[in-house]
């Protein structure tokens, strides 16, 4: 039996934490509701309100016909750009990072600590230090303003994270297991495929989720290295805000925001556990 004071205390704690929880949901709820309201309705009242008329057409319009910076094809091409950048960059950087992390953690070789230190320094190196070099590298490779250019950048820079994640995970593989494999006569690739990779799904999921959300949400490279129809959706959102500044179209804009935020949110919703594990893994570097 709890004392009345303790019961009261527990009530207070529950009210406080759930109140905060609701507060954290407000921006999401507001933007979703707005995406279903008409521009006039928003202008007349405020951004925060319940739709009087459910305006589902916002989504149709913003998806395929809305004009962003002189092009009237909606947000779809930019979503496709983001997907075309994010998916290959995520997969390639994860795979290469897994092999590199495996080599660094389980095969000692000359200079392995140095190279690992340098690669992980990339986790901290600000993007601003790399903007001009990337501009020039992209130009010399003829990849300026291309999806392939962004894939390359995100793959190479992502290696810092993927290598770090996988290396830290593989460090926990017991030394005896590697010894047993050596005695059994398994080589570099066989040990990777048969022993290490089957142990890897947890870290690979973490890495894929981390890479996917980060590349999808990335803005600076997108806006710097691509223009117009080649931009990823984050850059398009900013362009869209600029375009509607004169005539407020907040319903449409909200719909665009919801659409652009949806893929990483879905990933979070279905892989939440791994998402959090990635955060903490990234934090304990």
């Amino acid at each position: 039996m709890r004392s009345p004071a303790a019961t009261l205390g527990r009530w207070a704690i529950h009210i406080a934490i759930w109140g905060l929880g609701i507060a954290y949901l407000v921006p999401l709820v507001v933007v979703v509701l707005n995406s279903l309201r008409s521009a006039e309705e928003i202008t007349q009242t405020s951004m925060i309100g319940w739709p009087h008329i459910w305006e589902f057409s916002n989504y149709i319009q913003v998806w395929s016909t809305y004009c962003i910076a002189q092009t009237c094809s909606g947000i779809r091409p930019y979503m496709l750009n983001s997907a075309a950048v994010t998916i290959p960059a995520t997969l390639i950087s994860t795979l290469l990072g897994a092999v590199a992390g495996y080599a660094i953690s389980l095969w000692r070789f000359k200079g392995d600590r140095w190279i690992f230190g340098l690669v992980t320094a990339g986790v901290f190196l600000p993007e601003q230090m790399r903007l001009i070099p990337w501009t020039i590298v992209l130009r010399d490779l003829g990849m300026t303003n291309t999806i392939a250019g962004l894939v390359m950048i995100h793959t190479i820079q992502g290696l810092s994270f993927t290598t770090l994640f996988c290396r830290n995970y593989y460090m926990a593989i017991p030394a005896d297991l590697m010894k047993a494999a050596h005695i059994d006569g398994a080589g570099f690739f066989r040990i990777f495929w048969r022993i290490v990779l089957p142990l890897s799904p947890p870290i690979l999921i973490v890495t894929v989720i981390w890479q996917f959300t980060h590349i999808w949400n990335e803005f600076l490279y997108g806006v710097t290295f691509t223009t117009g129809q080649q931009q990823p959706v984050t850059a398009a959102l900013i362009a869209l805000s600029a375009a509607v500044a004169d005539v407020p179209q907040h319903g449409l804009q909200s719909a665009a925001v919801v659409v652009a935020a949806l893929p990483p949110l879905l990933v979070y919703l279905f892989g939440g556990r791994y998402f959090v594990r990635g955060l903490t893994a990234g934090a304990v570097k």
Partner: peptide, 10 residues
Amino acid sequence: LYPLAVSFVV
């Protein structure tokens, strides 16, 4: 935690 999945732009 969901705000972390959302981009800074959003």
